[in-house]
Design a protein around this nucleic acid. Structure first.
Lengths: 221, 221
DNA sequence: AATGTAAGTGAGTAATCACTCATTTTACAA
DNA sequence: TTGTAAAATGAGTGATTACTCACTTACATT
């Protein structure tokens, strides 16, 4: 189960604001991720987390004031990583270094394969995020802030390059963003969270998904 | 809050297998829908449900053996109604009575406007379904059964009419279904559950969504 | 080796949980 | 009006919950 967890993201989780975690604290975070993901936050008990972590229940509350604080410390960093294609300068630069021709194709392919790996490595964390975002305002607020400050402006810049002038001026980028993200997330959620046991032909599905988005956007007027 | 609930669906909920519900039982179901939707199943307490329903806590367990049985009795009928455009013969017949030209456009428009109303009237029920499907195998099993027995074959029939022969034979209908449903659900979930307070221009969004899907599919090869 | 500080422990606590059941209330046919 | 079965009640149950705290252990520094 934990073999699936992205080691880099875990590392980041475990070093919130330069603070080193003790070995037992690491065990607590790992156990919490597993159990929150399996049963949901509300149905997960601190006694079960302590048991799976191989730790006394009191140890959890040495490091986290409440069960909710433990959840938040796990989930908030995931949001930033979720949006990383729009945060990292380098990521978009690499796309625009290629030939002008078929830039949208490159953009989509790069984003989808990158986020595919992210979902594959962090399925448990993303399931927790997906579930709990509806019930915790801290998560919603962080999401909105990152969308407004980081994602939306960067995405708008990317679309200015990738769309025709008429399209960029007449169609709201929010709408194009919604259509694109729905299609990509629809694939990744189906692939890793809703029906992971289906016999997926990933390469084929991703190619169809890229074609679908590209032609879908191209035809908008 | 309950004013939003689809009266027909509620009626169906309240008459599971010809069984009439007592007035207090109706109040229990209504309160449970509200509270499950607000806090999630696991975080909802039977005492709070009883309080909001204006009923003694024991009354809940006169009608439902367990809290979970109450949830299941509420959620399972929603799945059938969720899939209704693909179940009702009449629905598809009306679409195919029109001109051959632009049949796909009619199909998408009819499905989207129909499901838009369904989401608008049953937001609370759909939020419960969305949340709890990941944790209760009864819900997952019912979903899979309805998809395999009802939705998939009917959708395949519809696509046989709406796609070119080459497309229908070369592209898996499951993939086309996934791409179409992702886009439609992406819109409806954003519209009613994720950011319902956004200032939505529904007619414009729906038109773009139809264009996007139609051109997206048309370009698949 | 001695000392100080941080980490870890686990029994204990009050609150809340889903659920039970003996009893009362209600609805309606006779 | 009376009899009766179904519906409703709410105090009570044991189990579980998140969280506390007095105490022990581990470990780095001198």
């Amino acid at each position: 189960m934990m073999g699936q967890l992205d080691k880099e993201l875990l590392q980041e989780l475990l070093n919130v604001s330069d603070k080193e975690l003790t070995p037992k604290q690491t065990q607590i975070v790992q156990a919490a991720i597993e159990i929150f993901s399996e049963k949901g936050f509300a149905a997960a008990s601190t006694s079960e987390i302590a048991k799976r972590a191989g730790v006394a229940e009191g140890t959890i509350f040495r490091h986290y004031k409440t069960k909710k604080e433990l959840l938040i410390s796990i989930v908030l960093p995931v949001i930033s990583n979720f949006a990383v294609p729009f945060l990292a300068e380098q990521f978009l630069n690499e796309i625009f270094e290629g030939e002008e021709f078929e830039e949208m194709d490159q953009f989509l392919r790069k984003v989808i394969y990158n986020r595919y790996e992210f979902f594959r490595k962090n399925t448990a964390l993303l399931k927790i995020l997906l579930q709990e975002m509806f019930y915790h305002s801290e998560i919603q607020d962080t999401f909105k802030q990152i969308y407004m400050e980081k994602i939306a402006p960067k995405y708008r810049n990317a679309m200015k390059r990738l769309l025709t002038k008429e399209q960029f001026e007449s169609i709201p980028t929010e709408t194009i963003f919604r259509l694109t993200i729905s299609t990509i997330l629809g694939y990744l959620l189906a692939r890793f969270i809703i029906v992971p046991d289906y016999d997926w032909d990933d390469e084929r599905e991703i190619e169809y998904t890229i074609q679908f988005i590209q032609n879908g956007i191209k035809g908008l007027k």
